[in-house]
Amino acid sequence: MTPPVNRTVSALLATLPALEAAFADVPRPTRVMGCTNCCISPEELEVLSTTARDDLDAEALSSYANNAMGTVGSEADFRYFLPRLLQLAVTDAFEYPDRPFVIRTLKYVPWATAWTPAQGAAILAYLDAWWHGTLTEATPVDDVDEVLATLFDVLPTGEHARILATWLEGGRTALAHLATFVQAHSMQVALGKKWDVWVPPGASEVVAAWLGSGAPFGALFGQFERDPDAADAALFLDAAALLEHA
């Protein structure tokens, strides 16, 4: 029997048609350059330059995905390969790198400011779907802490407050993830320390201010009040207590 598709994968799959359409007219690179000492082989570079984007599988793109915008390739060819990279990342098709690693490569390109509005919107929809799917899955396929850190790393700073606000709109499961985050990281975040290795500079201060704004406390305490006898009620109450005087 085929296992059900989880919420994150389902949400990401729904964004792929718009992503493919937005990048459909990006020309294929005639040559991809890269470090062939240890990062990618000449044969792999040849495949990238001679194979249609949709025909490239995870094996063909793995070395590129692991080194793109570092020791392999340019912004122009990354723009061409990106929809295929993100498509393969949906199902974690790469043995390595994993989905968060692939997504973090976006921080090296001006996708939100210099690429076409359609391309920027398609990428933003993909990132939103990743966040929403993660928050609404009881056992997320990607670690919530890492997903949040990655979004702070790749999104324009103007989007950070919106991403945090959506955490309060994802229902009880999303708030359970928030309660777990608060219990695990509220102190280090308040001190300006990273909650995950991928947290970019300044992110902890933004999260700390949001946690102290009153809205997260209200949402968590509200969940406790709705059903104080629930098996997970203490999770919400304890997390709210940590924020009450933040």
Rank of each mutant, 00 (worst) to 15 (best):
E137A: 14
P97W: 10
P156T: 02
A65I: 10
T150W: 06
Y108Q: 12
D55C: 10
L148S: 07
E95F: 00
F94D: 02
F81A: 05
Q119Y: 11
A125I: 03
P110G: 06
G73F: 12
W130D: 06
D57M: 02
P100E: 05
T150L: 06
D143P: 08
A58K: 03
Y80D: 08
D57E: 10
T134G: 00
L82I: 08
T71K: 05
E95S: 02
Y126G: 04
K107N: 04
A122S: 08
T116S: 15
T157E: 15
T139M: 04
V144M: 05
A149H: 03
T71G: 04
G133N: 04
P97F: 03
W111E: 13
L106R: 07
E95K: 00
A89D: 03
H160I: 04
I103Y: 03
T166M: 13
D92W: 02
N67Q: 15
E146G: 01
A165N: 11
V72N: 00
R104W: 04
R79D: 00
D145S: 15
W131N: 05
D153C: 01
F101T: 14
P83M: 11
Q119K: 12
H132T: 15
L86M: 11
A125M: 06
E159M: 01
D143R: 15
T105R: 14
P97L: 11
A129C: 12
I103T: 08
T91I: 09
M69P: 01
H160A: 03
E159R: 02
D92L: 00
L56G: 04
S62N: 00
L85T: 12
L124M: 10
R99F: 13
Y126R: 11
D128M: 04
S74D: 15
G73N: 12
V147R: 02
L82V: 10
A114Q: 14
A60S: 13
V141F: 03
T157K: 01
I163D: 00
T116V: 06
E137N: 11
P100C: 06
A149M: 07
A138Y: 07
V109M: 05
Y64H: 12
D143M: 12
V144T: 15
Y96R: 14
P117W: 14
A93S: 11
A58F: 03
A118K: 09
L151I: 11
L155V: 01
E59P: 00
T116R: 06
V144Y: 06
E59Y: 08
A76K: 11
R84I: 01
N66C: 15
Y96N: 11
D54W: 12
E59D: 14
P110Y: 04
L82A: 14
R79L: 08
E159D: 08
L148C: 10
T71M: 07
D145K: 15
T150P: 05
S63R: 10
T157Q: 12
H132L: 13
R104G: 06
G133S: 07
T105G: 09
V147G: 11
T116Y: 05
P156Q: 08
G158T: 13
R53K: 11
D153S: 02
A60Q: 15
A121E: 05
P140D: 03
L164D: 09
Y64Q: 14
T150Q: 05
P97C: 01
M69G: 01
A114K: 13
D143G: 14
A118F: 06
L135M: 15
W131I: 10
P156G: 02
A125C: 05
H160C: 01
F152R: 08
F94R: 10
D77C: 13
L106K: 07
